[in-house]
Simulated scan of single mutants.
Amino acid sequence: MISALLLSGGQDSTAIAYWLRPEFGITVDYGQRPSQAELNAAKQICTDLHMEHVVVKADCSRLGSGDLSESPALSVAPSSEWWPYRNQLVITLAAGAALAHGAQELLIGAVANDAGHADGRIEFFKAMDTLMSMQEGGLRVRAPAIELNSTELIKKSKIPMEILCWAHSCHRSNFACGQCRGCVKHKNVMFELGVSPY
């Protein structure tokens, strides 16, 4: 089965890339503030792992909310980085690219830590799998690390630090701000792994 990975360039999708070695990684630039850093990280990870890198660009910045966008968080936002229907959006965009490249499955870098968002839960990914598989192309959607937290995933993947260090987790900038939820998670995971992020 030909697999594609939705590769944001963050720690989780980077660990999955190393662990499962899909044929290619798809990075979606949907208008998020740190898009250039995510693209750079994903490109380097694909180079290191000899994977094809596919970039999808669709400027949806006017739909954004919170840290990832230039707009304040909406009142319904469960956290500062929440962007309405983001996972549904990027999965849909990546799925089109995956089919165009002959993939039968799209891997998603979601982990147990993501369950604070409705679109980070196992039920959401099962629903997306059902929705995609019933359409032309029959693409399957799978979140192979959904029952692991980020630290467990990285340990299971056995990814070397020289590859993991390319990951970009900041929600606000192309340079790590050190303050957002993405930067804090990145730092905490590194401490749990026994690596000082400084």
Score class of each variant (00 low, 15 high):
71 S>C: 06
101 H>E: 11
90 V>D: 01
80 S>A: 13
32 Q>H: 04
47 T>P: 00
96 G>I: 01
91 I>Y: 02
89 L>W: 04
32 Q>C: 07
87 N>H: 12
99 L>H: 11
42 A>W: 02
72 P>H: 07
92 T>F: 04
36 Q>P: 00
86 R>S: 09
94 A>R: 10
87 N>A: 07
73 A>F: 07
34 P>W: 03
57 K>E: 12
49 L>R: 02
66 G>E: 04
92 T>G: 15
31 G>V: 05
24 F>T: 03
44 Q>Y: 03
33 R>A: 15
78 P>K: 12
79 S>F: 09
37 A>H: 10
102 G>P: 02
62 R>S: 11
55 V>T: 13
93 L>E: 04
94 A>F: 14
71 S>D: 13
44 Q>M: 12
55 V>M: 07
41 A>V: 08
70 E>W: 13
77 A>S: 15
28 V>F: 06
70 E>N: 12
42 A>G: 13
93 L>W: 08
70 E>D: 13
69 S>G: 14
68 L>E: 06
69 S>A: 15
89 L>M: 15
26 I>G: 00
71 S>I: 14
25 G>F: 09
90 V>F: 15
30 Y>T: 02
75 S>L: 10
74 L>H: 10
83 W>D: 01
53 H>Q: 13
70 E>F: 13
44 Q>C: 03
61 S>H: 09
45 I>R: 05
89 L>R: 13
69 S>E: 11
95 A>Q: 01
52 E>F: 04
99 L>Q: 14
86 R>M: 11
67 D>V: 00
68 L>V: 15
35 S>A: 15
83 W>V: 15
62 R>F: 13
29 D>K: 12
93 L>P: 00
38 E>G: 07
50 H>I: 03
64 G>D: 02
57 K>M: 01
95 A>T: 05
81 E>H: 13
83 W>N: 07
74 L>I: 05
50 H>W: 11
82 W>F: 15
24 F>S: 02
33 R>I: 12
79 S>V: 05
60 C>E: 08
48 D>C: 07
56 V>S: 03
69 S>K: 12
26 I>M: 01
27 T>M: 06
94 A>S: 13
48 D>W: 01
40 N>V: 05
65 S>D: 08
84 P>R: 12
80 S>E: 10
41 A>T: 06
43 K>V: 02
29 D>M: 07
102 G>H: 00
56 V>C: 06
98 A>I: 01
59 D>S: 04
58 A>P: 00
86 R>D: 08
36 Q>V: 08
29 D>L: 08
50 H>L: 10
39 L>H: 01
34 P>T: 11
45 I>P: 03
25 G>K: 04
94 A>L: 12
47 T>H: 14
63 L>S: 10
28 V>L: 06
87 N>Y: 05
77 A>R: 06
69 S>P: 03
68 L>Q: 14
79 S>L: 10
84 P>H: 08
77 A>H: 10
62 R>N: 10
42 A>V: 07
97 A>V: 04
97 A>P: 02
60 C>P: 00
50 H>T: 10
65 S>G: 05
99 L>T: 12
100 A>P: 00
98 A>K: 07
